[in-house]
């Protein structure tokens, strides 16, 4: 079972929910893997504090053009959707930082002028905290190519584990890569106009992807009722409401988990887990 924690808006509490869900599941004796797919700024390790035992560099294949073999036919340039390989004035130029590593250019090259070399974009690290297996990706600073690294993190999904995926915010490629293949998606939001706007974008995305989902409203006693009205109108299940509680914020700011420090919150996260599994 794979449960992804996502949100349209950033800073709504994805990591708080994801890390606490992993903790309560492991306290129930379940085999749990926590995969931090927010590779641009992973922070699950701050709360779960795993001991790492493995680091693996991740590369994407990028084209290398042999100018002696190249006939300047331009087929590589035509197939590349990302302008990573372009025919300009009879020369082929490559832009490795734009390359998604699909390999299309070397496939269509009729003269065998294109070979591939690896370009490192980041690392995957694996570790454990107690019974929780922990995996995250760290994208190299300045690098824009998150999806191939997220794929490498997700290769470490164990089919028999309960896998909790901490997704990046938003609705773009890295998010889709993170939530794809999940059995259930928990959307974390807050009851504010920003929260609602970005929640509705995330809902639209999940409907296109045809994934099951529910909503957790964090800091539920601030803002207004518009998020609740929206969920009711759209027949979206509100899995839980987490109050705007200073003690939760203090726990977070110390890098601790509410489910461990504040027993009444363990119950909230168990409820979320029950409703989505």
């Amino acid at each position: 079972m794979i449960v992804a924690i996502a949100s349209g808006k950033g800073g709504t509490g994805k990591t708080t929910v994801a890390a606490n869900l992993a903790l309560v599941a492991s306290m129930q004796g379940r085999a749990v893997s926590y995969l931090d797919c927010d590779v641009e700024e992973p922070n699950g390790h701050v709360f779960l504090k795993p001991e790492m035992y493995l680091t693996e560099p991740v590369s994407v294949p990028v084209p290398v053009v042999d100018d002696d073999k190249c006939t300047a036919c331009g087929r590589c340039s035509e197939i590349c959707r990302y302008s990573a390989i372009v025919l300009l004035a009879k020369t082929v130029l490559t832009f490795p930082n734009l390359c998604h590593g699909c390999g299309g250019c070397s496939m269509v090259c009729p003269s065998g002028a294109i070979t591939e070399s690896g370009r490192e974009i980041g690392v995957v690290e694996e570790g454990a905290r107690g019974q929780i297996r922990f995996v995250h990706g760290r994208l190299t600073i300045g690098e824009a190519m998150a999806p191939p690294l997220i794929r490498a993190v997700k290769k470490r999904v164990r089919p028999d584990d309960l896998t909790i995926i901490d997704s990046p915010p938003g609705t773009s490629c890295p998010v889709i890569q993170s939530v794809k293949g999940s059995d259930y998606v928990v959307l974390v939001t807050e009851p504010t106009p920003f929260g609602l706007n970005d929640l509705s974008l995330a809902v639209d995305m999940l409907r296109v992807l045809n994934l099951r989902f529910g909503v957790v409203v964090n800091r539920a006693d601030i803002g207004d009722d518009a998020v609740f009205d929206y969920c009711a109108k759209q027949s979206i299940e509100v899995l839980a409401q987490i109050p705007h509680d200073r003690r939760v914020a203090e726990t977070y700011s110390r890098g601790l988990l509410a489910a461990q420090e504040l027993p009444e919150y363990a119950e909230v996260f168990r409820t979320i887990l029950e409703r989505c599994c």
């Binding site: 340039s77 990302y82 302008s83 372009v86 130029l93 734009l98």
Partner: peptide, 15 residues
């Protein structure tokens, strides 16, 4: 409206 590589494509058009 290109997702990326707008400068490269525009340069290609100028060529």
């Amino acid at each position: 409206n290109a997702a990326q590589g707008a400068g490269i494509q525009t340069a290609g058009n100028l060529a």
